[in-house]
């Protein structure tokens, strides 16, 4: 895993952002309701937080890794040459594919970013520019490299019963487009795409 992909653990927060209400906020809201409200700001805040947690839990209760994951994803073998792996990625239309050993145990992930890293570029656009500027100097030999050497390892995985919290934490930990879903023995069960997860959260467009 590259430095770019890794974040310190303190930053990882799987909780949906919860706003802290100031006393001024609560008092202003109370003032806008006519009539004496028999409640302190602290009571209101405590109720708000508890009710909010409950509502979030209810909103995301349906989210489970094995319900959202894609089935039938063929993992790459670790000793596959990188050029063949690249063709498989392009053909499959998924730019992040798990790498697994013969028993199906997940060893890592091979993503577009891994190819960029080996080419010493950060993006597709940078790659094009490099090719335009110096086509002859580009002599990376993908067929001499194996998937094992290029992959990001270990992969951030989630168990089949991973909840909203765990999945969100996984996608916080890495920037990839997908996370492998594994069973107790780390065998590949499916692939959970970031976009499928975000789609399932049905987040309102404006918060």
């Amino acid at each position: 895993m590259t430095d770019r992909q890794q974040r310190p653990l303190e930053e990882v927060s799987s909780e949906p952002h919860e706003m802290e209400l100031s006393d001024e906020d609560i008092l202003a809201a109370m003032a806008s309701i006519s009539g004496y409200l028999d409640i302190t700001t602290e009571d209101f805040r405590a109720l708000y937080h508890l009710a909010h947690q409950r509502a979030v839990a209810r909103m995301f209760a349906h989210i489970r890794a094995d319900r959202l994951m894609r089935w039938g994803v063929d993992p790459l073998a670790p000793d596959l040459p990188l050029d063949e792996a690249a063709r498989l990625l392009v053909r499959g239309g998924i730019m992040a594919v798990p790498v697994a050993d013969a028993d199906g145990r997940v060893l890592g992930m091979l993503t577009e970013a891994d190819f960029f890293r080996r080419l010493h570029v950060d993006s597709f656009l940078e790659l094009i520019l490099r090719l335009l500027e110096d086509p002859s100097g580009f002599t990376h030999r993908f067929h001499e490299t194996t998937v094992r050497e290029a992959m990001t390892s270990p992969a951030v995985t989630v168990p089949e019963d991973a909840s909203f919290r765990e999945i969100a934490a996984a996608f916080h930990q890495h920037e990839g487009r997908a996370t492998p879903v594994v069973d107790g023995a780390r065998r590949l069960r499916g692939l959970l795409l970031r976009r499928d997860f975000i789609g399932a959260c049905k987040l309102p467009s404006a918060i």
């Binding site: 008092l27 003032a31 006519s34 028999d38 302190t40 700001t41 602290e42």
Partner: peptide, 9 residues
């Protein structure tokens, strides 16, 4: 613990 009692009606 609380700052600010309910506002005047």
């Amino acid at each position: 613990a609380t700052r600010g009692s309910p506002p005047r009606v």
